[in-house]
Design a protein around this nucleic acid. Structure first.
Lengths: 280, 280
DNA sequence: GTCAATCTGGAATATTCATTCCAACACTGG
DNA sequence: CCAGTGTTGGAATGAATATTCCAGATTGAC
């Protein structure tokens, strides 16, 4: 029994284990690396699951889990699992602590922490708001409309641009044809001129509205190309020329809005469209 | 078999169980009361322990635990234990409980609605996860580091690009000098070559990692330019070459991840940096 | 291309665990 | 004091689980 790997002292707490794993990740065989990645990325699963269930979702054999544990000096998988459970017990208490701090609001906290907590809270609120504001029927209509289009034109400038750019990326992966409008200067209008009534457009614009986006959406609508839009007010210039439009009010922190809710909406729309196409 | 105690419907979540226990506490026999008290006082023990170990520390027999569970309509002790475990998982996100219901009753709804609800739930979970994962001290260090830089280089490709593009927009509004890397092909490396040790970089990359981003971050680090990064795993190539790095695990819905949490983080970082600069 | 060393998958095994069962016990009402 | 009903402890059981083992596959060196 050449106990080369038998560290007599297995790590005593989760942080030590984590450090050891990261340190030795280079010299690990393939399957053990796979376990290492899974373990650090899904610690909760390790804590709660059984060897069999974890093995399944990490796509390895149960025996590999045992080997992995033994490689780091544990008796078996169970010993390693104990550390993951201990971590969970401690973390929940520290998380509750954090929530308490968040509530009592920090005179004592670093300003960055206050800002961070503020954006986290704002994101939560925004997402709640959009969940309440979007009517399932309207969403379904929008999906049907866009799924039926030959090419989907994505119109967004400035602050909205990250949303359309992410949609363009996702559509690419999902093999849905789309055109991202607003990239390089100049060619936008030429691109839009090629759109036909068999296409459709999705426009995003928040106050203060980029006049260009509104103008482009209007001209599309005038040519019989249906427009779906995401905006932040019923008075938005986009609303009036859209076949369907959705209102998302991103909660702000200190006057700055994040895009968390819009991003969730955009992804839901993107995936729904792809799914509807796939089904015929 | 007088199944007087056989509630056909056992409590479905921890709060319901807790309520039921408290309600019926008076009419419980001695040993079962003992278990009830122990269970509500040491929920974590119930979640992780084995029937034997719990019995030992609650000073009852294992069989009593089973009887206790059955008394409340469960099949056996294991069924009850599941609730305690679920609670521990979901304590991280109080939203999840509410939203899980949204997710699971999708049969009657249009598919697009299910997808939408799924992304809303995933966004909530992601944001909770990042709130728990980001240490205030590390965040403050990252802010200080980036606020002290002459120019902030933003490195991100593909799926991460919307994040850096939004940061670039916000930095522009906030009058913080930055360079967005990854726009047009070719000039990226020339741009990065101009960076000096007085600058800093912020890199974002999620699995599957764009090798370009990692290489650029590494080369920056090698030239003494501090790198802060946002990524989704401790094994990310970004983690090892960063002065500070943050882990955000975006919850996924049907395999697709949105960027809600990353967006909130990015905004918090951006605004914090600007704020720190403004104050000197 | 061959060999040795290491790694991997999956069946076989040993252990641990929850559960059941029954005899002994403690209350309660007559 | 005596049934009768409900409760309790602890051993027996059977299921689930972690662990071990070995043959086959893979990798790396020469």
């Amino acid at each position: 029994m050449p106990d080369t790997s038998a560290k007599l002292q297995p790590p005593q707490d989760f942080d030590a284990l984590r450090a050891t794993i990261l340190e030795r990740k280079g010299e690990l065989p393939k399957r053990l690396t796979q376990v290492a990645v899974y373990a650090l990325d899904h610690p909760d699963e390790i804590a709660f699951g059984t060897a069999a269930s974890i093995a399944l979702s990490a796509d390895v054999q149960p025996s590999t889990l045992v080997r992995f544990a033994q490689h780091f000096g544990f008796d078996g998988f169970s010993g390693l699992q104990l550390l993951f459970r201990a971590r969970l017990r401690e973390r929940t208490s520290s998380y509750e602590e954090r929530l308490r701090i968040l509530e009592q609001d920090g005179a004592a906290l670093a300003e960055s922490t206050t800002i961070f907590n503020g954006f986290v809270a704002a994101a939560h609120r925004s997402i709640d708001a959009i969940a309440a504001a979007v009517e399932p029927e309207a969403f379904e209509r929008a999906v049907t409309l866009l799924a039926g289009a030959d090419t989907i034109y994505l119109i967004a400038k400035r602050r909205s641009y990250p949303i359309s750019s992410y949609m363009a990326y996702a559509f690419g992966k999902l093999k849905v044809r789309c055109q991202l409008v607003g990239t390089s200067a100049g060619i936008d209008d030429d691109m839009l001129a090629m759109a036909t009534a068999r296409d459709a457009a999705f426009a995003v614009s928040f106050s203060p509205y980029a006049s260009e986006s509104a103008a482009q959406a209007r001209s599309m609508a005038a040519r019989g190309i249906p427009v779906v839009s995401l905006t932040d007010s019923a008075f938005s210039p986009l609303a009036e020329c859209s076949a369907e439009w959705f209102e998302v009010v991103e909660a702000d922190h200190a006057g700055f809005r994040s895009l968390s809710a819009s991003m969730a909406f955009a992804m839901a729309l993107t995936v729904s469209i792809a799914e509807k196409r796939r089904r015929g």
